[in-house]
Amino acid sequence: MQLWCSAAGGAAWTWTWQPYLGAWLFVLAIAVAYAWQLRRLGPPTDAAARNRWKIFFAAGLVLLWLALDWPLAALGAGYLASVHMARYLLIALLAPPLLLLGLPAAVFEGLERRPRLMAVLRNLTQPLVAFFVFNVVISVAHWPSVVDLLMSNQLGAFVLDISWLLAGLIFWWPVICPVPKWPRFTPLWKLAYLGLNGILIRPVFLYLLFARFPAYATYELAPPIAGTTALSDQQLAAGIMKLGTALVMVVAMAIVFHEWAKRSRDAVGGPTRAAQR
């Protein structure tokens, strides 16, 4: 049994289910840690908010589990670059904001007793640093020689997945602002931050899209799956990377804008209504 999904070493693709114990344990550990944290916080003062946190966190965890388990993990690890890229969207761009939205601010109060960790977290989640770290990590983690090296073994595949997840958490932190005490990014800056990431063209995207030959040996030398060629699969992967990222950013910008507009309306409408009463 494999703990973490890596390239299958030339075995033909089969729809026979395979367990990945490491992925289950990883997701289960996060779920248990989350439940323990909620329990530590004691009985809810705001039951609706608590339910909302749980729903967000569970949704994030389900997306993470989908990306780390069979069949997506197996297809993405050793057969299709396009699935590899879809997993990246799930792990780095979709699961992290939901996980962060599911964390109550009180969870971070415990961190105040650890000033060094707090300082590292604060520095890493500065918007400029977060933007830089995310894009560098994602560019490096998609570079063909790095992917070929890491995907060939379970430890490497684990490192790649975790690097996506951590980079995603760092990237989304300034947008979600899970610690209310920390300086907050204004909505306008959030829109600029997300918009810039949406339009940013990473060199690795151009390389994957315009390469004459397949860039990833892992997928070029993988047993073929009907209806695809290694190059068309790679171009689809580049499309998923660019359009998928842009779509996620546009949706996030729409949510930020909606929240901003709502808060402005409340701020303007609040006293007026009060005066009318």
Binding site: G10, A11, L221, A222, P223, A230
Partner: peptide, 9 residues
């Protein structure tokens, strides 16, 4: 399942 179609492709 593997080597032949990869070489040919």
């Amino acid at each position: 399942p593997d080597v032949c179609p990869i070489h040919m492709a």
